[in-house]
Amino acid sequence: MKNIAAALISGLLFGGGLTLGGMTQPSRIVGVMDVTGVWDPTLVFLFLAAVGTYHVIYRLAVPRGKPLFATNFEIPTRKDINPTLLSGAALFGVGWALSGYCPGPAVVSLGSGQAQAIVVVVAIAAGMALFDLGPLVPRGLRNIPKKAT
C-alpha cells in the first residue's frame, strides 16, 4: 500500500502546484502563448522550475537502480521522432490553446465544479477513447511500442 500512499502524496503536490502556479487559469495559458499580443510570461517560470526540480530528482533517483516502493523504473525508452508523435502533439497543441486546458489542470479544475472544466474533462476522456478504442485509428498507429530496432 506504500505505493498507493506515494501516488496520493504525489497527486496532492502536483495538483497544489498546478493551482498555485497558475495552470488552472486558462486565460494565463492563452496569455503565455499570445506571443504577438500582450504576452504574459508568468507560466514560463513555472515551466522552468518544474523541469529543473524534476531533473534534479530524476538524476538522484535513477542511479539508485530501483524505486523505493516498486521493483523497477518504468521510463520510456523510445527514441524515434515519427509522424504519429508529431501529429498527435500538433493536435494536442490546438486543443490546449482553444480551451486553455491540458489534462492535469482540467482534472484539478473539476474541484471548483465549473462547467467548462467538466465539459473539457469529459471531452478529453472521449478523445482518448476515440484514439485507443475507436475505429478511426489503424491498429498500427496506436501506442503499442514497436520492437527495438
Binding site: G21, M23, F45, A49, A50, Y54, L68, F69, E74, I75
Partner: peptide, 23 residues
Amino acid sequence: NSLLGGVLIGLGGGLLLLFNGRI
C-alpha cells in the same frame, strides 16, 4: 507563485518516480 508552483509540480512528479518508478 509560479516558481513555487513549478517546484511543487516537479516535486510531485519526482516523488512518483523515486517512490513508484513511474512517469
